[in-house]
Design a protein around this nucleic acid. Structure first.
Lengths: 230, 230
DNA sequence: ACCTGAACACCGTTCAAGT
DNA sequence: ACCTGAACACCGTTCAAGT
């Protein structure tokens, strides 16, 4: 519980957003409240509303802060390396702020935030790759949809209350699957436990799917190349 | 506002879940409340808690209902057709219940719900395709992560209050981009408006990204084939 | 310009008490 | 076994009034 405001100092919009981000990183979006935020800032709940229109707008600002950490790779790189580097940079930023991920998953607002610089750069790389017209747009959607989608799913939060009990239950569920009915799951159980979507009980921060993400990038790049007829 | 309970009839867990799903389909997850649900069911708020542990558990049940609509394709299909058919079935189910999508995006709980049947079937198809061991797991994560992720992003809700004003603002933002700084976006503006992630202001229900999803499936299948060395 | 007091209209959840 | 009354501890937001 940091106190970013000096005694008697004025509250600023910037301080509000900073403290909101800190609170969310600490306790998650679920636990975040405007009144709690005001408490941490040492002000009346109404004060916050002088600096930001409402909760939704504040959360959009928090999201923008995190997305601003993404860096664009050198545009002179080969297009496929550029894509891979960009995707890794995106994933790294979100892994630094896993509790913010629900905000990105949740709202068209934030996934449409003024990231036009990145859009511009990505479109450019796709033209360099050889795509044209609708082909560029399709490739763009493939890359963004799979990349953002994968990471969003990877870092989806656990059910807030339950924790240990819930994790234990899911673990047993997987261990006790009838072998005859689920031969594949039985065979792959250890490879898949906490290392695949659906068959995990730890969130992405604790059990990152690094290999799977690299596989995704490989598949996307190869698939795009195939579409180009190379 | 349907009234699923006859006068004097007993409340059941099933009726609670059904009404919750109906309410969410009507007004969205954001607007859903336990008290509002009780009101619609014509019972005391406390009553609901006799049938379901809490809000989180209820929402998980609602999610499960929707996911139960997904059908598994004929296992005798070629593996790539099977994948494509399965992904389309998944997307169709969620397009029928767009307001439920935030629940899937949000919680590891629901994305880990007992969908073991589907997991088993998918693993089987990937072995048939020629993948082995870790290769199967990687392919599984690629398919699930990109498919679920894409649809989740496609159907992400609009900011709840703003609607028209917000949409108008985003539209103008795209229209007024400086041409010299954003040559690609200028060139692709019409192709991309409401047809690509980040550059849209309508949610996926109103402006579905059909073509982009088909492109994703094509890219994934081609990429997986390339990994198999075909 | 910035902040507070006080209020409005809500929440989720619990639990003793009723039938 | 199922439901209600009543309460606890919260919310987001507004707005007149203060400085």
């Amino acid at each position: 519980v940091t106190s970013p405001r000096e005694e008697g100092a004025r509250l600023t919009r910037d301080a509000v957003i900073t403290q909101a981000l800190a609170a969310i990183e600490r306790d998650g979006v679920e636990a975040f409240s405007m009144r709690g935020l005001a408490r941490e800032l040492g002000v009346h709940p109404g004060s916050v509303y002088w600096h930001v229109a409402d909760r939704e707008v504040l959360l959009a600002e928090v999201t923008a802060r995190v997305l601003a950490e993404i860096t664009l790779p050198d545009p002179a790189l080969p297009w496929d390396s550029w894509l891979v580097e960009y995707a890794r940079s995106y994933r790294r930023a979100l892994h630094r702020h896993p509790n913010v991920v629900p905000l990105i998953n949740y709202n068209l607002a934030s996934n449409s935030a003024s990231a036009f610089g990145a859009v511009e750069a990505l479109l450019m790389q796709l033209e360099r790759a050889g795509f044209r017209d609708q082909g560029v747009v399709d490739a763009f959607n493939v890359v963004v949809g799979s990349m953002v989608g994968f990471v969003g799913l990877e870092l989806a939060p656990l059910p807030s209350g339950s924790a240990e009990a819930w994790q234990q239950a899911r673990k047993e569920e997987l261990d006790e699957l009838p072998t005859t009915e689920f031969p594949m799951l039985t065979k792959y159980r250890t490879l898949v436990a906490n290392r695949a979507f659906v068959t995990r009980w730890l969130p992405g921060e604790e059990a990152p799917l690094d290999g799977a993400f690299e596989a995704l990038l490989d598949v996307i790049v190869r698939g795009l190349r195939a579409r180009l007829g190379g």
